[in-house]
Write a protein that binds this DNA or RNA. Structure first.
Length: 203
DNA sequence: ATCAAGATTACCT
DNA sequence: GGTAATCTTGATA
């Protein structure tokens, strides 16, 4: 039996090439401390956004009040509010002032699932299949984990929110597609997901 | 000051 | 598969 001791991802992990970081984030474990509880989930779906030549990126038109965290160096959390209702969480990637990030689109819940259920629905699960509706979307996973505007700019090398390393996936385990819900730069194949995972937002 | 768009979701047929 | 809900933001005047 081989034991794999998960270690927190370092600054160095995040400051690499965007598409490498995006793919490598699949299978890693997002951890958020919430009072005495520790919430966690495996990252099963992500999308890459680049500030320079990607018109779908919030950073494409340069730095604004909303997106300024995207211009940090890699390893910070960029959280934005959209459609009057939802927060979405991104991992800032690359060097300072680049405006590069990876959107976390879906998690497979692991720890404190009871808290996620309460955050999402305010009640216990009625149908067993509802567990697949907890964190299978960028807004849903933020609601489940209690991620909101006050987490914008959090340093992922700190202790409040961080990501644990896991063994790298084989490329045959990773699916690739166009990104979802955008209207510009739609042809970039910058969505990555774990093939066959039931918590991915769209099958 | 006003306005249109939005990296979504839930609910409808 | 279609669409209403809801409000912040950035752009324009």
């Amino acid at each position: 039996m081989i034991f794999y001791k998960p270690k927190k991802l370092s600054r160095q992990f995040y400051t690499r090439n965007l598409l490498f970081v995006a793919r490598d984030l699949l299978g890693k474990v997002l951890v958020k401390k919430s009072g005495s509880k520790i919430l966690s989930g495996k990252i099963v779906e992500v999308e890459a956004y680049h500030g320079d030549y990607d018109q779908a990126s919030h950073a494409f038109k340069g730095k604004t009040n909303r997106n300024e965290v995207m211009f940090n160096e890699g390893g910070y959390l960029y959280v934005y509010f959209t459609y009057g209702a939802h927060f979405c969480a991104n991992i800032v990637v690359g060097k300072k002032d680049k405006g590069i990030a990876v959107l976390i689109r879906a998690l497979e819940p692991m720890k404190s699932i009871d808290v996620m259920i309460k955050n999402r629905f305010g009640r216990k699960l009625i149908h067993d299949k509802e567990k697949y509706n907890l964190t299978n979307g960028p807004g849903k996973l933020c609601q489940a984990c209690g991620i909101n505007r006050k987490h914008n700019g959090v340093d992922l090398t700190g202790n409040e929110i961080f990501i644990l390393n896991q063994p790298k996936l084989r490329s045959k385990e990773i699916g690739v597609s166009k990104r979802i819900g955008i209207t510009r730069s739609v042809n970039l194949q910058w969505r990555f997901f774990i093939k066959g995972n039931p918590f991915v937002s769209r099958r």
